[in-house]
């Protein structure tokens, strides 16, 4: 008897005997063939040693229909209601990433406008150019910082989604008595090189931001001869 005949007879009789999770059962026998074939046995020999598929199919009869349908129902309703809450959480998380991205882009455009001495649509209030140029450095480094923040949050969301998806599938697999896959970590795993690079950019831009922000305020204060320079340049009139 060759492999396909054996599996065919087994499957047919399992179906006849109303055994559940037949694919899972067949999987074990397929694996058995794979390993034995690797060891150099022929399909005929393997089938002979496995025994009579008709007999094997009867061995599964007593094992079926012992699950508690109640527990299954609770598990499935539980995971579906959890899905709804988690979906809301993920939507919020997405929105947060969008906000971060817009914030970064806004900082970048303010920085560039100050640096290039532009005022698109007259949105940037008046400042002497050199004062604005110092501040522009701090805006650009802030943009860099929050772009990295956006990227990291995005990676985090991606990993969380993956991890939740695995958990969701495992719950279903468990109710169906199917084998589960190992759960996934919730933190994104960056390569050592990437995370080192990101960390040094973050530290650098944080320092530049702090220094140029303070320096900018000092320069403006000295130029305007007032701590409240915005009154000197009539920003709010």
């Amino acid at each position: 008897m060759d492999r396909y005949m054996f599996i065919d007879i087994l499957r047919e009789n399992l179906e006849k005997n109303k055994v559940t999770e037949i694919d899972d059962i067949i999987f074990e026998y397929e694996e058995h063939y794979n390993y034995k074939l690797e060891d150099g046995y022929s399909e005929e020999e393997i089938s002979k040693k496995l025994g009579d598929p008709l007999f094997l199919a009867t061995q599964y009869i007593e094992n079926t229909n012992k699950e508690q349908p109640n527990k299954k129902f609770i598990n499935i309703t539980g995971i579906i209601s959890l899905d709804i809450f988690v979906l809301l959480f993920f939507i919020t998380f997405y929105a947060w990433i969008a906000v971060l991205f817009v914030f970064s882009t806004a900082s970048l455009s303010i920085g560039l406008s100050l640096f290039l001495n532009l005022s698109p649509y007259n949105l940037i209030p008046y400042l002497p150019y050199w004062n604005g140029a110092v501040l522009s450095i701090s805006f650009i480094s802030l943009a860099l910082l929050s772009y990295i923040g956006t990227y990291y949050n995005y990676l985090y969301l991606k990993q969380l989604l993956k991890s939740y998806f695995r958990f969701h599938n495992n719950v279903f697999a468990k109710t169906k008595n199917n084998p589960t896959l190992p759960s996934l970590p919730i933190h994104p795993k960056l390569s050592k090189k990437t995370s080192r690079k990101l960390r040094s950019i973050v530290l650098f831009s944080l320092n530049v931001f702090a220094i140029s922000f303070i320096l900018g305020y000092l320069v403006i204060t000295i130029t305007a001869k007032s701590f409240e320079f915005w009154h000197v340049y009539n920003w709010f009139i």
Binding site: I25, H32, L56
Partner: peptide
């Protein structure tokens, strides 16, 4: 024993 007999037993242990 025939090689195949272990698999129904494993399934019973699991159930």
């Amino acid at each position: 024993i025939a090689d195949g007999t272990i698999y129904p037993v494993l399934r019973k242990l699991k159930n």
